[in-house]
Structures are given as C-alpha cells and as structure tokens.
C-alpha cells in the first residue's frame, strides 16, 4: 500500500519535471518548479527523515521561489 503511493508520487514528480521544460512561459516554469520541491518534500517523509523534509519544504518551496521571481522581475524590466 505504501509502496504504491510512493510509486505514484514519483511518477507525479517525473511528469511535473517534464512539464517544466516544455512550457513556453518563464513565469509559469518558476511556479511549476515549486511543485517539484513540494513532491520531493513529501517523499522525504515517506523515507522517515523529518529533518530533511522540513528543510526542503522551507527552502525549496519558500525561499527559492521568492528569489527566482524577484530576479525574473529585475531581468525582464530591462528588455
């Protein structure tokens, strides 16, 4: 039962990662990248590592997305 759920989550992560590459808009790709971080954090809980899950959730889905969007705004204003 748990093995089935973990396999399903890994397929979701692969599909989302392929979707990041194929999407044409850059702002969409940044937000979909946050979904990959979220699925990684959940699968860390399945492997019974709560320290790594907390770190990945706070840094991957919070700080990395914020810094990406601020940099994107700064770069796209010049063009």
């Amino acid at each position: 039962m748990m093995l089935l759920l973990a396999t399903f989550l890994s397929f979701v992560m692969i599909a989302t990662a392929i979707w990041v590459i194929l999407t044409p808009s850059l702002l969409k790709a940044i937000i979909i990248f946050a979904i990959v971080s979220l699925v990684a954090s959940v699968s860390f809980i399945f492997m019974q590592a709560p320290d790594v899950a907390i770190t990945e959730a706070s840094i991957g889905a919070g700080i990395t997305t914020a810094i990406f969007i601020l940099s994107y705004k700064r770069v796209s204003e010049k063009n």
Binding site: P50, D51, I54, T55, S58, I59, G62, I63
Partner: peptide, 9 residues
C-alpha cells in the same frame, strides 16, 4: 526534528 538550518530559513 529541525535544528539550526531550517530555523534560520
């Protein structure tokens, strides 16, 4: 669980 690094983040 936790520690110093996620607390700083």
């Amino acid at each position: 669980p936790g520690g110093g690094f996620p607390a700083g983040a």
